[in-house]
Design a protein around this nucleic acid. Structure first.
Lengths: 148, 148
DNA sequence: CCCGTTTGGTTATGCTTCATAACTATCTAG
DNA sequence: CTAGATAGTTATGAAGCATAACCAAACGGG
């Protein structure tokens, strides 16, 4: 028999919605990373690629602001996408400081495939919840995000 | 006028519940860190302290398992709590390999105060949501956590 | 009882995310 | 024209997390 037969309980922490959210987020993040790994993407590079595909020509600083990431860190993610041949940093004729980000054909291709996988993952994650329940979750997440 | 007057949109990413959850979690985490900072605690040290207060005598490895943290990393958090004088590592007479974790009086005191602050934070975070909506959110988070 | 295996705690190391400071080049406003 | 702001970059450090390796102690089959 073990030294501690008494069971350990996190019931007190379970009372906090934030604690449950963190645990759920852990699982979600690990699962999503597994989903994206075959495409050579991670959560942040996928988000970055998505923003570039959907907003062609945008600047890195706009990207950073939209994704709540520091400009300094965005450099790394754009670097990785550029080195993979999925994104290009074109000079911006209107502002020689800025870059205009565009995706390549290969980038659009991998994005389409990855997006389908992420959509499937998102659907699977909410499997068993009714549409109105999902709507409630979205509403709650929105409140938490802006409410601070 | 700026080079890019066209507005940047993350609408495509907003379609994913996971993306909204990550953004909400970012805000939550930053806000909770601010809440805990006056007490000299962070999310993980607070969770660790809570588990020790609520489960006196438990072993570090039990703690790690309950909080989904590697044993190797748990060492650091227990170290910090011990150095702050809030937790003690007592020898376990039944198993000389193991440690029995207990909180000190000072540890119980700071925990009570921090817990009240975290409870207030959790309540404020969900302000504006009905009880049944909160229940739905809890249910969804539970599904995501175990569903994988 | 002996010895291989397992377990508990620890140390070291590396990766990812994130924040900050500092620098250069460029733009903008007075 | 000059001062200050902005865009991109580099360097650095903190936190969270994972893995491998190590030692001491416990366990279990022969």
């Amino acid at each position: 028999m073990r030294a501690e037969a008494t069971s350990v309980s996190d019931a007190r922490l379970r009372a906090f919605v934030g604690y449950n959210m963190k645990r759920a987020m852990n699982v979600l993040q690990a699962d999503l990373a597994r989903t994206l790994q075959p495409f050579g993407l991670r959560m942040l590079t996928f988000s970055t690629l998505s923003m570039i595909v959907e907003n062609p020509g945008l600047r890195p600083s706009q990207l950073a602001e939209a994704l709540l990431i520091e400009r300094a860190n965005m450099v790394v993610y754009v670097d990785q996408l550029e080195q993979a041949g999925w994104v290009t940093r074109a000079p911006n004729p209107l502002d020689r400081r800025a870059h205009a980000l565009h995706c390549t054909e290969a980038g659009a291709c991998v994005y389409d495939q990855a997006r389908a996988a992420v959509e499937a993952h998102d659907r699977r994650m909410l499997d068993g919840l009714r549409a109105d329940e999902v709507a409630t979750v979205r509403k709650a997440l929105g409140r938490i995000e802006v409410g601070s």
